[in-house]
Design a protein around this nucleic acid. Sequence first.
DNA 1: AGTTCTTGCGCCCTCTGCTGGTATCGC
DNA 2: AGCGATACCAGCAGAGGGCGCAAGAACT
Length: 609
Amino acid sequence: MAGAELSVVPKQFTQIKEPELMLEKVLEEEQKEDGVCRVKGHPGSAELEAGSTHGALQANIQEEELELVLATPEDNEKHIVTLQSVHFTSEDGALQELGWLEEGQVGVQPAGSGLPSLVWLGEGSQQSLHQCVAISIQEEVYSMPELERLQFQVLEENATPPGEDSRSAVSLAGSTESIKLDTGQKEEQLLVEGGLSEKAEEQFFLVEARPGEEGRDEIVLTISNFTVDEPETHPAAGEAPVEKADETHSQKKTKEVKRTFQCDICVFTSSRMSSFNRHMKTHTSEKPHVCHLCLKAFRTVTLLRNHINTHTGTRPYKCGDCDMAFVTSGELVRHRRYKHTHEKPFKCSMCKYASVEASKLKRHIRSHTGERPFQCPLCSYASKDTYKLKRHMRTHSGVHLRNLHTYKAAEMKCRYCSATFHERYALIQHQKTHKNEKRFKCEHCSYACKQERHMTVHVRTHTGEKPFACLSCDKCFRQKQLLNVHLKKYHDTNFIPTVYECPRCGKGFSRWNNMKRHSEKCDSEQEKPAPSEKGRRVKKRKPAVPKEAATTRYLVVNGAEAAAEETALMSRAPSLGGLVPIDLGEAAAGSEDLDEDLTCEMILAVMDK
DNA sequence: AGTTCTTGCGCCCTCTGCTGGTATCGC
DNA sequence: AGCGATACCAGCAGAGGGCGCAAGAACT
């Protein structure tokens, strides 16, 4: 922005911490015939001009007023303007002394005015199609938490109705999150005044608050015009901006005065009154549409109709290629993609994966990024989706047994039979009886198993089938995993076999249990065990990796609740050394929950500590 | 205002690979 | 009988398929 000169308190870009601090200034706009929008502002005297590939940008600052002139380009396409800031310096105090800044304000200050520039105007960034304003605020002026409520005055394009300022209120829920800044509250007021018709549309702004450059105590607010960020015209990262194919459409879009209906109860916003009204019903218990068959009530006719279809079995959308039928057309389309057309519109950019649904692609991408947003509250495990976490939580079920014993008023039905239960534990125990059913029985022997795949493998022991052949030698295997082990062991030159060494004699073994068995014998040969240890039953537990001196250490606490608390704490902080909390009192009482060898381990651990 | 299309979330399932424990086999 | 290797079994977790449903967006 060479040559730009402004000296003004540009309150059009003023942010005010609280509503009562809001400037009483109202922007005056003049709609000029040549499509130039003049915005009258505040004292100053300077003039800024900049050429732009999209059009001319002018900011005329005269005494007592600032005029920012946005000259539309020849093709009337909305040009892209980027305002970038420089930082408050130690001289911001001087600015306040000069009356340019009220305390807690951020002003726009032209470069080259002899005072430190606060914001300069730049032509459209080549990297972005967003119309945006970036403002940096020194943290001494605002801290992130203070940015809870800001008031912006935004220069509107010439379509803004005269007399309507575009001040917008925004609440920053999170200091580092992108949020929508909208004019909804203002419009709500205008609606009361009858100033806007319902057809008027909102203008979205995206406000991002983030810390500034490293080493600088600043906050950078970037205010982006949402309306120009059309997905169809938004270039992918790394691509040069492309001219909009439908300029008339985009121009219309950007020139419309938009508004938003914002829910006071949740974060919901909508551009349509009808959607807003429908949403608001979700916050009420009003369910005027009652099913005549079961008296269940619903908010909308459509929901009731879908519900009644579950009674009647009505599924109007029938698949032409199979017997499936669905309540909605969308379900049918999705079904056809899955089962018949195999159309997968959502393609992964990192691999060949494609999916029918966007959510599946989103889930898939986590396998590339390693993102695991779903953290287990009891251990370090984190999952990529909710179901896996839910499945994982079953492994903690023995710790949380008491939670399973709450009486539930609603009956819980067994998924395998017609039995019902009011206690979750009883249900789970019952379902286990189904789970342990060995439904798959061998035709050739008495072997039975729970899973079909195991039966498939077992049957091969009768047929002699070994479908997994090694390509490097003639060996064949009944199981793929055995082939894999073989390949690693005999044909993979990089394969380093795991060796478990006997801690007594150092002899190596390929399997931990063999080493363990050897070690016990080696132990008894080399040193006679103490009488107390002689009768000790060896507790079986999973060997740690590596297998060197895998001794479990116990943290002895007093009371079961304390033990549970410590367990939770330890699981969240593996760095604490993997201590296993255990209730000494319960152990001493000889609880059935603690076997004798565990007690011995515990005592050893106490001695160790 | 009603209807239809689209989107997103959640739930549950299967398939698969890996790993560990146990049983069995062969030397 | 002892020992090592192999076979078998089972559980957990990763990945993905398929569907139900609510709600937003678009259309009539």
